[in-house]
Design a protein around this nucleic acid. Sequence first.
RNA 1: GGGCACAUAGCUCAGCGGUAGAGCGCUGCUCUUACAAAGCAGAGGUCGGCGGUUCGAGACCGUCUGUGCCCA
Length: 879
Amino acid sequence: MPTHYAPAQVEGKLYERWVRAGYFEADAKSDRPAHTIVIPPPNVNGSLHIGHALDMTLQDAITRRKRMQGFETLWLPGMDHAGIATQNAVERELAKEGLSRHDLGREAFVQKVWEWKAEYGGRILNQMRRLGASVDWSRERFTFDAGLSRAVQTIFKRLYDDGLIYRAERIINWCPRCMTALSDIEVEHQEDEGELVSIRYGDGTHSIVVATTRAETMLGDTAVAVHPDDERYRHLVGVEIELPLTGRRVPIVADRHVDPEFGTGAVKVTPAHDPNDFEIGQRHSLPSLLIMDERGAITVHGPFQGLDRFEARPAVVAALRAEGRIVAEKRPYVHAVGHCSRCDTVVEPRLSLQWWVKVGPLAAEASAAVREGRVKIHPKELEPRYFSWTDNLLDWCISRQLWWGHRIPVWYGPDGQTVCVGPDEEPPGAGWTQDPDVLDTWFSSGLWPFSTLGWPDDTEDLRKFYPTSVLVTGYDILFFWVVRMMLFGLYAMKDRGPVESVPFRTVSLHGLVRDKFGRKMSKSRGNGVDPLEWMDAYGSDAVRFTLARGANPGADLATSEEWAQGSRNFCNKVWNATRFALMNGVTPAALPVRERLGAPDRWILSRLSAVTAEVDAYMEDYQHAKACEALYHFAWDEVFDWYVELAKAPLARGGEEADTTRAVLGHVLDVTLRLLHPYIPYVTEELWLALHDISPDAGDETGALGAGEQPRSIVVAAWPTADGSLRDPAAEAEIAALQQAVTEVRRFRADQGLKEGQKVAARLSLSGPLAAHEAEIRKLARLTDPEPGFSATATLQTPQATVQLDLSGAIDVAAERARLSKDLAAAQKEIAGAEAKLGNPGFLSKAPEAVVTKIRTRLADAQADVARITSQLGALPLS
RNA sequence: GGGCACAUAGCUCAGCGGUAGAGCGCUGCUCUUACAAAGCAGAGGUCGGCGGUUCGAGACCGUCUGUGCCCA
């Protein structure tokens, strides 16, 4: 075995072996209880970023533990078709050849996208393999597959027939670059610098000043609105005034939604290009004038026709200025502007005929499922965020003016008829045309927890694996994807009743991965990290451990290359500790009877039992950071640093004692590797196979294990359960005293500047159970037996040990005095604190008995420390 | 403007009513036969400010200041 773990040499080999053995494939016919996770489907055109790596690591850890626990585990992989992003990508390709999708035509273009997908799509799935994701590849799904498309058509038809999908003309978010409608959540609001221009409308008789950041929209104004109680304008309500540049006259209307405090208290009303203005228009039966085409160019006849909206804006302002209409200008004026989340183009609100989901009744169900505890949001602190969405959802615009996506299954007849076609129905014949639009990608990924299992058919998979057990995703996805799945799952599965219709029993939310200073990763900042580069440099396990170790529920995690290095170091430590064991002939064996175990054995087994219980509880509660932390410290500090050091002597002595030590070390390593496996699967598998003397190349791995069959991989080895009978407080106290004595001597040696290898003669006086450990203390503290002429030049004390040392010369009295004085001060402070409490009648009468006892013990210990340290100080030479 | 978080060691974060913790970084010393990707030892914090509740407050309540996020 090499002295360092080399991830690149084992990862690929092991992953292939796992897949070949079928460990990750779920069996719907199994009678084991199911544990299901569906992956939040990444974009078909995406590649693995650090956030995916975190999300997948956590899902894999959960899944691997459940698999080891004997659940029939399904972790289902797949991707979504990412309508806008994918269409954009292919259009960019076409543009290089000077072509647009319109040159190809709809059918040929969609075919082109499929070809593109076959060639470039799904890169991320291979990257998941590298990460070690134990997904069931036989069940890989794609939102645009035939089966999932059938699910989309089915639910569309049902919702349509139930009156929950309708078509209506409303203001939508329009992206003039993508040339499609967007839903509210696909719009990102950013603070942009713009201008606020105040314009005087009207003429000599009546005039009014309005302010706007979008001056060009005045071409589409059909009114000016003021608040009905606004004294300043009351006399103008009902009057028609001149709209500059257009030759039109528009009314002044009174509307309660106008804020009289903002600006002049009068607002221009452009019903076709602003959601609030549209509402005002509806209330006052105002006409709506569309003044731009789909690319955002002005369509109004006159000097501005054909100008892009951003060219038209200054042109309109200039024209107004020429007429003396500009009353005030504020520039720059910072305000929130909506941008397309796909291409960052400024979104244009636009009156448009689109398809909508009536969300109200569905959202009420989604809200109730969480309020009634049928679905748990973890951590609970994020529940308000969930409710803030489900309780305030507006109707969802689901149609997109794209070609890549599920086409809306609605046909229009020659005489204005409309028919929605179900999945097994024939479309109507000649003279009918299908709606040209496609559905929002989220419409299909909202079905993911059941469409992937074969819905709408009543499949074995669906019966076995739905509802899914837990959904693991970032809190930033809560409001769109999670809520969508809740809406659809509860609706599509309602026949199963309230408890069984939920898409998942728990939503486990993690945070965002940030840089080492806690800043958001971004392209402009250049602080993003490529998880693949880290995998190359430090191994997949190191990347996984770094992410899992930082994953506190619902909280962002800062990460940096140093921490990946630290995780790599940890993996290497595990490697070398196991390597040590193997070099000493350790193999897992039955634990010897208790009588044969020494105190170190009983101590480490006791700790193992405690840590097993702790880690198991943390993982059950999705507290990965804490589970990793507990494992890290147990493995490194306790097993590798102390137990392995204590094991060296008995191993060297040989005989039955060595056999016992080998058995205990083998057991502890075996369990520790299994506990670590969900987080660092590769190195633990490599070592576990070595420990069990199984060749990974033998090809003798078995899939589902039969009764009594030995696992040939840690992947299917049993998850450890804590053996409470191994708990041994006495042994823990005994080893703690040993550690205290050893550390005290080491500390003294370091303070005195003694070389590490320099032996020091010492006389030990050990009390209680510690008396049995003189040899261990001498070895670990590098103390030799006193020789004739021994002269104690320094004396060290711990509660159970007195160590006299012969340094054969003067010691550094000042250093020792400084040290002892510091300890003395600490002990005295402790006494003062304890005495203050015990002298307080309120404390004695009101504090719980256990706390009072604890303080009394602490006082006594501190008093003993003061006595001991004082005597040590007194014994020091004066100079 | 509305809402929700968060302020603890140099950095990033745990702790959430009864002795201030971790990782990294830092300071010494060591190639001690698993590991220098290591070992040993150590330094470092009036837990953002001010009030309050309590026998007792990083922890609970109020308030101020600062930061972040979501929505408008």
